[in-house]
Amino acid sequence: MSPEHGARRSRVILVEPALTQLAKLTASETHRLDRAIVAISVNPNLGIQVPGTLLRDYADEIDDVRVIYYVTALGSVTIVAYVEA
């Protein structure tokens, strides 16, 4: 990777439960959540693996957000299933 380029991000897709939660958030909550989703798109291994599933659970206590997601096999797409802020 050349010095002028940052880390490669995965494409993030929100599915229906996450979209429903997103519609309920304030602008401030959405801003906090955006930071978490960007962090996950750069490093999909941030969350803790949910035992027995493909899901990962990422909680950021500083921004007070939680994202439940899974990553496709090649790591190029992150599917967000649930968000809360």
Score class of each variant (00 low, 15 high):
I79G: 01
T78A: 11
R8Y: 09
V80G: 03
V15F: 10
G6S: 11
A39M: 05
Q49L: 11
Y70M: 01
A23P: 09
P17T: 12
S76R: 12
R9Y: 03
L33K: 03
Y82Q: 14
A23C: 11
L33D: 07
I79T: 09
E61T: 10
V12S: 14
V77C: 01
T78M: 05
S10P: 01
M1H: 09
N43L: 13
S41N: 06
I68G: 04
P17R: 13
H5Y: 11
S2F: 09
I62C: 05
T26M: 12
I62E: 13
R11N: 11
Q49E: 12
Y70I: 02
R8W: 10
E29W: 03
Q21I: 01
L25N: 11
P44Q: 12
V67I: 12
I68C: 06
T20Y: 08
R66H: 08
T72K: 04
I13H: 09
M1C: 08
R56G: 03
T26V: 06
A39V: 03
A18P: 01
V42R: 13
V80D: 00
E4A: 07
A59I: 08
T30M: 02
L25D: 03
G52Q: 05
E84K: 10
N43W: 10
A59D: 07
A7H: 13
R8G: 05
A27W: 09
T30F: 02
S10N: 02
Q49H: 06
R8C: 08
Y69V: 10
V15I: 13
A73F: 13
R8V: 14
I13F: 01
L33H: 10
D63F: 14
L55E: 15
A18E: 03
I13E: 14
A81F: 08
A59H: 08
T30L: 14
V42I: 04
L74D: 15
Q49W: 02
I68V: 15
S41C: 07
P44M: 11
Y58Q: 05
V77T: 13
T26K: 15
Q21L: 04
T53K: 00
S10H: 04
T78E: 09
E4T: 01
S10A: 15
V80K: 01
I37T: 00
A27P: 00
T78H: 00
R35E: 08
G47K: 05
E84G: 13
Y69W: 03
G6F: 08
R9H: 10
G6T: 00
V15P: 00
I48N: 14
S2K: 13
A27Y: 02
Y58T: 00
G52A: 10
V83Q: 01
L74R: 09
V15A: 09
H31Y: 09
I79R: 04
K24S: 12
L33P: 09
I40G: 02
L19M: 12
L14C: 07
A39R: 09
L54K: 06
A85W: 04
T53F: 09
V50Q: 07
P51H: 02
